[in-house]
Design a protein around this nucleic acid. Structure first.
Ligand code: FES
Ligand code: FES
Lengths: 144, 144
DNA sequence: AAAAAAACGGACAAATTTGTCCAGTATATA
DNA sequence: TATATACTGGACAAATTTGTCCGTTTTTTT
């Protein structure tokens, strides 16, 4: 469904969202430990998210990554997915045709598009804040 | 969403379903041409489907691949997907945790599972015959 | 029986994704 | 200013997926 990179990216963002609620930032190693991901690979992903201003990075001691608290409710999962995996999740044909197009549809088009649109809607209506809240309401996990 | 192999597998199966309605079988090269897929790679996929008795292969002149007409309505897309991609589409965690488990859920679990279940339901309720019919009712395409 | 047609299967190769290493840069603190 | 800390970015490596090649086997036709 999503690439590994994207899975790590979302998990890292949710972890950062939880930290943001505490007014904290987190270092690369802390994040990688919290979400059980390969450190150096996670670094690449965080750099990508930082370049796209989904998270902010700070160098030096006391540095790390951070999501400004006031951004929490504005960061949709769809933003993260788009930055990391592009928009084939939202636009791609289920049977791999070059483009998904209702006027030249594959035989699965209408069934597939219905579900793809729901996925898109879900990713757009869910923010990292929502997922951080989820971590409070019930025991939920970012690793294993 | 699905692997390339799986996309080719479904497209090939739909093509064979349409041929079955005509009482025809199709050779590897004919199939690859019809669905615009790499010939040798397609061969591997067809062999896999044949080993799992989703399609039947015949050697020699007049040989090729075939779906028995009376099987058409019994072959669900979910069968094909499972043989080629396994069941991570149906059971996998959206955020990449080792297993998706409601009693140890990732923060996206409930939203994700809802959509994953709809996808599963769609794949189970759609047969290759349904898709072959689709090709009759309106112009639909297996390539480009 | 010989030849031709078509799938089979194993080894190999290319491309992509995932993951690692390390020297460089920026920054906080002493 | 020196040092330690943490992110950055480029090159590299491993793993997986995608795709190719070719000799073998089976079957039909001549
Ligand atoms: S054309 Fe295949 S999903 Fe739209
Ligand atoms: S645990 Fe992540 S989707 Fe179920």
């Amino acid at each position: 469904m999503f690439s590994k990179a994207c899975e790590y990216g979302i998990r890292a963002s949710v972890y950062l969202a939880r930290q943001a609620e505490k007014g904290d930032r987190a270092s690369l190693t802390e994040i990688a430990k919290a979400i059980d991901s390969p450190v150096a690979f996670t670094a690449k992903i965080l750099q990508l998210l930082a370049r796209h201003e989904i998270i902010i990075s700070y160098k030096g001691p006391t540095g790390g990554y951070e999501i400004p608290k006031e951004h929490l409710s504005g960061i949709q999962l769809s933003h993260i997915v788009k930055v990391i995996d592009g928009d084939k999740v939202y636009r791609g044909c289920g049977l791999g045709l070059k483009e998904c197009n209702a006027s030249k549809p594959c035989p699965l088009h209408f069934q597939f598009k219905a579900i793809r649109d729901e996925l898109k809607e879900m990713l757009q209506s869910t923010t990292v804040q929502d997922l951080a809240n989820e971590l409070h309401r019930r025991p939920a996990f970012l690793k294993r």
